[in-house]
Structures are given as structure tokens and as C-alpha cells.
Write a protein that binds this DNA or RNA. Structure first.
Lengths: 212, 212
DNA sequence: GAAAAAATCACCCCGCAGGATGATTTTTCA
DNA sequence: TGAAAAATCATCCTGCGGGGTGATTTTTTC
């Protein structure tokens, strides 16, 4: 079994060095480094790594743009986003654009390695602490419809992940439960909201300020 | 072939009378009238009509609540919503709650009859003028991402309908094209937005202010 | 008037989503 | 402590969604 090949893209040399050491120590193969989004894309093209670690904020094409470029040209490469902010907005966009993972820079080294490994295997994993903030923090405003919906805690989490654009399988992985369990929650959510599919549920969630 | 049985629910007697005459003249059978949402629900329960015409605004349970109650208890009954406002917000909710049609009160008599007839047959039809206003009116603010997406006119319409929660078949009916055509547009939309399913496309649309 | 873009539609395939049902375990709360 | 609610998971089934390909017609644009 060959090593997982990774490209690191961040505009700060210090961060790159830190990540490189961290990943190398875990037995991963850092095959390239980029300081801009554009560089990251061309490196991905020439080196075909298993995973690209992209900082959200970079000169000459930011992380999201680079992500989009890579996924459209090289969809088989897994891209993990790195950020300092726990922004639902960005998270949602990154997921929609096909990111395999989303990491906070202050995440535990083990957590970073875990997410990169999972990404290489084709899984989608969101950093636990980031996920926490997204799932547990509900904007207080406009909570009336939410109250009326009378969702349970777990159903609420599932709904938020639906509203982020995750599939049932991705939700199952994220919440560490089985796919069947997720499907059960999803059905209950539909009943309670009075909708008939996940798209309508997502729209409901966005309109009622459940996310963002 | 028996007449289509309709219940009319509106808190204004004048409106009810107008609708009754209009529908009767078209050969439909108005089997009941209600002045409140609660009445409409109980009438629906006892009379089992083919179609219920619900005013959005009514005392004792508004139209949306009545719609939800009817659809959960008697899903086989088609419900057409009546309103004076062309609100995307309400339209989206009504569709999500299972409305078969959505009519403006100042719609042409022929149009009203057409929608009620279509609803009785199980189709989902949105009043043409209302649809027009929803489809052709794009909030100017935040049009940057939209420009970048570079969608064609028809793709834009399809995306808006996706963001209202319509299925491909419903979109096909609404735009009067084949299902295959819709699917083609949908695929192109996904490519242009860089998303992988309709839920993410809907979220994109809402976030970028494409609807509402 | 020719070339390019947009819109239309068909057929095939596959997998996930969504519906129905039943069941067990854990947690909550009166 | 005992009942109710919540969370977990399974299995079966069906259909729609989404991917791939190809093709024709209409409209736009240079």
C-alpha cells in the first residue's frame, strides 16, 4: 500500500512547514507545496496527488476558486479546505463545490491527519469542532417556525446538514450513525415540516434561518 | 364522466359568490363553501371533494395551515391556493406543503377554471401571470455570482423552479417542455454552478438571492 | 449567410432517495 | 419506577434524479 500523496497550498511558509512536518510524521507523502491558488491548481494538474490541502484565503485565486477549478478538471482528486474561521457560509459553498473535508487550522494534528486520510479514501469529513459550531449554534432570530416544527435534537442536526447540501451517506458519516438511521430521521423531518423531499427541507431551513 | 367537485374557502362572501358562479358556469360542481380555514378542513373531511380552493388569508387557521392539515389527512385531495399577492415566499411554502396550484385572485376566469381542472387531474399548475413575475423578476442585488454562473434564460427559469422545490416533472409541466429537456437543463445548471445535486443548486439559488 | 449558442428531446443506466414496517435500546420525564 | 419519547438499525420496494451520449431545431450573433 503506497503512501498517500498530498499537496499543500497556503500563502504562509510557516503554515506550510507546520503542515508538512505534521503530515510527514504521520506517514503521508507531501509531494508539493503552493503559495497561491493558481499554483495549487497547476501543481495538482502536473502531480496528480490523492489530496490537495487548500487554504481558503490565498492570493491569485482563493481557495474556493481553486477548489472549483480542481474539481472540474480533476474530479478524482480529493480537496480538503483549511480555514481559520468557522463560517457556515464558506462551509456550505465548499461542500457544494465538492470539498471532501473542511478543517480549522487550530485543529488537533491528529484530527488533521484523520481528515486527510479519510479524504484520500473518498470520504467526506468535517472537522469535529467546526461541525460542533455549525450544528449546535442556531440563530435565535426567527425561531418561531422552528419551535412549531418540534424537531428533536438529532433531527435538527440532520436538517442542518441537509441544508448544507450533504447526502444521506455524508450525513451518516458525519454524525457517525448508519445510513438507515439517517433515513429514518429524514422521513420524520419531512413529516414534521410538511415537505416531500430534501430540497424543500433545505429551502425551509434556509428560509427559517436555521443555517448561516 | 362526473363533474369535478369543488369546495371554496374564502372569508369574503362576495369572493365566494364570484367563484361559485364562475366555476358553476364552467360546469364544475361547487359542493361546499367555507369562511374559515377550520371550516374548510372539516368540510373537506366530510365531503371529500376533488379540489379545495383555499384563500391564503383567512380567520381561524390561515390558508397554509389549512393546506397542511388537508394534505396530511387527505392527501388525495388537490388544493389550489388563492391569493392577492404574488409572493415568492408564500408560493414556495405552498408548493412545499403540497399545493396543486397557486392562483392570483385577479386572474382571468378561464385561467382559474383551467388551474382547478388541472389540479383535479393531479397536475400542478401555477397561474401564468404569477409564474411570470416569479420567473422573470430577479432581485438586482447580489447579481454578481449569478453573472458569473452564466446561465441561459431557460436554465435560470429551471433553477428558480428548483429553488421553489419543484421536481423535474413539475418543472416540465410548468414550462411546458418534456421531462428530458428539463433534465438536460438541470445537468447544465449543475455544471455551471459546480454542484452535484438539486438540493445544493437550490441552496445556491437562495443564498445568491435568486428567489424571494 | 455561416457559425455558434440555446433549446428541444430520446434512450440507457444506476444508485440514492423516499415510503412502509417492524424492532430494539437508550433517554427522558412524570 | 414505569411509561413515553427519542435514537438506533434493518429490509424491501419503487421511482426519480443524475450521468453519459447523441441528435435536431431554433435562435442569436458576427
Amino acid at each position: 500500500m503506497s503512501k498517500i500523496r498530498v499537496i499543500i497550498a497556503d500563502d504562509h511558509g510557516v503554515v506550510r512547514a507546520g503542515l508538512r512536518g505534521l503530515l510527514a510524521a504521520a506517514g503521508l507523502d507531501v509531494v508539493g507545496e503552493a503559495g497561491t491558488g493558481a499554483e495549487a491548481v497547476s501543481l495538482a494538474r502536473s502531480l496528480h496527488p490523492d489530496v490537495v490541502l487548500l487554504d481558503v484565503r490565498m492570493p491569485e485565486m482563493d481557495g474556493l476558486q481553486a477548489l472549483t477549478a480542481i474539481k472540474s478538471e480533476l474530479p478524482e482528486i480529493s480537496v480538503v479546505m483549511l480555514t481559520v474561521y468557522a463560517s457556515t457560509e464558506y462551509l456550505s459553498r465548499a461542500i457544494a463545490a465538492g470539498a471532501a473535508g473542511y478543517l480549522l487550522k487550530d485543529a488537533e494534528p491528529d484530527e488533521i491527519v484523520r481528515v486527510v486520510r479519510a479524504a484520500a479514501e473518498g470520504s467526506r469529513v468535517i472537522d469535529a469542532s467546526l461541525l460542533q459550531s455549525v450544528l449546535e449554534h442556531t440563530p435565535v432570530a426567527e425561531a418561531d417556525a422552528l419551535q412549531q416544527a418540534d424537531l428533536t435534537q438529532q433531527e435538527l442536526r440532520v436538517l442542518k446538514l441537509i441544508a448544507l447540501g450533504l447526502t444521506n451517506d455524508a450525513i451518516a458519516e458525519t454524525l457517525v450513525v448508519s445510513r438507515n438511521t439517517v433515513k429514518t430521521h429524514v422521513r420524520h423531518i419531512f413529516e414534521k415540516l410538511g415537505v416531500s423531499d430534501r430540497t424543500q427541507a433545505a429551502i425551509w431551513a434556509v428560509r427559517n434561518g436555521l443555517v448561516e
